[in-house]
Measured scan of single mutants.
Amino acid sequence: MEVRTIKVFTTVDNINLHTQVVDMSMTYGQQFGPTYLDGADVTKIKPHNSHEGKTFYVLPNDDTLRVEAFEYYHTTDPSFLGRYMSALNHTKKWKYPQVNGLTSIKWADNNCYLATALLTLQQIELKFNPPALQDAYYRARAGEAANFCALILAYCNKTVGELGDVRETMSYLFQHANLDSCKRVLNVVCKTCGQQQTTLKGVEAVMYMGTLSYEQFKKGVQIPCTCGKQATKYLVQQESPFVMMSAPPAQYELKHGTFTCASEYTGNYQCGHYKHITSKETLYCIDGALLTKSSEYKGPITDVFYKENSYTTTIK
């Protein structure tokens, strides 16, 4: 009895394709271990004539594949690729409408935090270190965002349907971005203890939790000093293409032309909904596939993004 075979390709990165001759009487799992086709788990399936010449994702289970996976995804987590594939199996079914010149995501599976993050990423200057993220990001900007969303979920250790947080998501993504040249110098002034300067680099240099107003941050924000008295913390120097200011959701007025974009969060910790506000020729609110415009805006804002380049204080 002759062994019926077909020729397929296996890959971990969709760049390096490895030619395989597979036995049609055995499952993919018996031949390769966990195997995925377009995100779908085909591990328990036997090869079919229609699979001839198709590319299958496999887990990096030998040295060659491990090197290829690390170079593309910059992670050695053995569960990463499987999590990416199972997320992709959902995100490829989502709709990605162009809204006001940006790629958004039609609401499904509690994905409003991903839509808000995706919209924000198209408006701030950011370059990702893992080629996987950078490639998928370019495709997302062009309207094909399924891979990018699935990668975000995998890097953030999230599953489809789980509630997510924009600030946490951005923080994970910033860790995989090139923020080497970003720098922030802060000064804390206390009447009792004097003053202390701190220099922050990388992710810490672009994120701040405690106030939404970048102007206020430049002037000074009140913080408790270690001595128990009130101290003032203010920005001395900022070198970065953008800054992200966050605070627990509270009524906040966004003035046209003073910011790049913002995240609105309605609801409580267990259950809520994100919308995205962007400042173009007027203010726009993007909620999944829905767009509304207004000249002014007041609502429960939790993150505001500002364009920056270089700032030095005039406070002496």
Rank of each mutant, 00 (worst) to 15 (best):
T10F: 08
D77T: 06
K92N: 12
Y252F: 14
L283W: 01
A142N: 13
H276Q: 03
I152M: 13
N110D: 02
K158H: 05
Y269T: 13
I105F: 04
G101N: 11
N89F: 12
M207H: 05
L173T: 02
G194T: 05
F217V: 08
G202R: 06
H48G: 12
A205D: 03
K201H: 13
Y28G: 03
Q216K: 10
D135I: 10
H18C: 09
T278W: 05
K307Q: 10
S310H: 08
L119G: 02
N157Q: 14
Q251N: 07
I124K: 03
H18D: 08
V8G: 06
S171C: 12
H48I: 15
S25D: 05
N187L: 13
A177G: 06
N110K: 03
H51D: 12
E296L: 12
T91L: 05
G101E: 05
Q270C: 11
K54D: 12
N157A: 07
K106W: 04
S86Q: 15
R167W: 03
Q196N: 14
Q216S: 09
I315E: 14
G33I: 03
L119H: 03
I315Q: 06
A40Y: 14
G267H: 06
V42M: 11
L118S: 03
F70C: 09
I152E: 01
Y284H: 07
V304Q: 00
F148V: 05
I124Y: 01
H256R: 13
I124D: 04
E204V: 07
D109T: 04
K293H: 10
G39Y: 12
L126V: 14
S240A: 06
P131Q: 07
D135C: 11
I105L: 06
R4G: 11
N110M: 03
F56N: 04
Q20N: 11
S25C: 14
T232C: 09
T260Y: 06
L291T: 13
Q175P: 08
T19V: 15
R83K: 15
R184Y: 01
L81R: 06
D13I: 04
P241V: 00
T11C: 08
D13Y: 04
L254C: 01
A87C: 07
A247S: 09
L151S: 03
K127I: 09
Q134M: 11
S50D: 11
Q216E: 12
L126M: 08
Q123W: 04
T258K: 09
V3C: 14
Y73F: 15
D63L: 11
H74I: 05
Q134W: 05
D38E: 14
V188S: 07
K293I: 13
L283D: 01
T292A: 06
K158D: 01
A142W: 09
C271A: 15
S246K: 01
T282K: 10
F148K: 03
F70W: 12
D109A: 08
K233M: 13
H51K: 05
T258Y: 09
Q230V: 12
V12Q: 11
D41C: 15
L133A: 03
L173D: 00
R66K: 15
M26W: 13
A69G: 07
K201L: 14
T232F: 13
L65D: 08
Q123L: 04
A247V: 05
D77A: 07
D287E: 05
Y234N: 07
Q134V: 11
Q222P: 14
F217L: 12
R184H: 03
N111V: 03
L291H: 11
D62V: 08
Y73A: 03
T266Q: 07
K46E: 13
G53A: 13
L133S: 02
T10L: 11
G33D: 05
A145Y: 03
K307G: 09
Y72S: 11
A115D: 04
R83V: 05
S279T: 07
A289G: 12
K280F: 12
C112P: 05
L37R: 11
K127C: 13
Y208L: 06
I124L: 11
F305T: 01
D165T: 02
V12N: 13
L200M: 11
A142T: 10
E239D: 09
F32W: 15
I15C: 11
H48E: 15
Q31L: 14
H176C: 08
L65W: 07
E168F: 06
F259Q: 00
F305L: 09
S294W: 13
R167I: 01
L88K: 06
T211D: 08
Y96E: 04
T11H: 04
S25N: 11
V3D: 15
Y208A: 09
Q175I: 06
T258Q: 12
Y208W: 07
T314V: 09
I124T: 03
P241R: 08
S213G: 04
S263D: 06
Y96Q: 02
T55R: 12
D165R: 03
A142S: 13
D165G: 05
V21P: 11
K293R: 10
T211R: 03
T91F: 02
Q197L: 10
A154Q: 03
Q230L: 11
P248S: 09
V8Q: 05
A115S: 08
E52H: 12
T27P: 12
I15Y: 07
G299A: 06
T199M: 10
E253G: 05
M209R: 09
Y73S: 03
E296H: 14
F217N: 01
L254Y: 00
L17C: 04
C190A: 00
F56I: 09
G33S: 05
S279A: 11
Q197N: 12
V160T: 06
N178C: 14
H273S: 00
F128D: 03
R66I: 13
T120R: 03
T282C: 09
V160C: 12
P248L: 11
M207K: 06
A132C: 09
D109K: 06
G272L: 00
K106C: 13
N187E: 15
G33E: 05
D23K: 10
Y311W: 12
A154W: 03
A117S: 10
D63T: 08
Q122N: 02
V206Y: 01
E204F: 07
G267P: 05
E239F: 12
D23W: 13
N147K: 10
N147W: 08
E2I: 12
F242L: 01
Y138I: 10
D38A: 12
T159L: 14
S279D: 14
A146S: 12
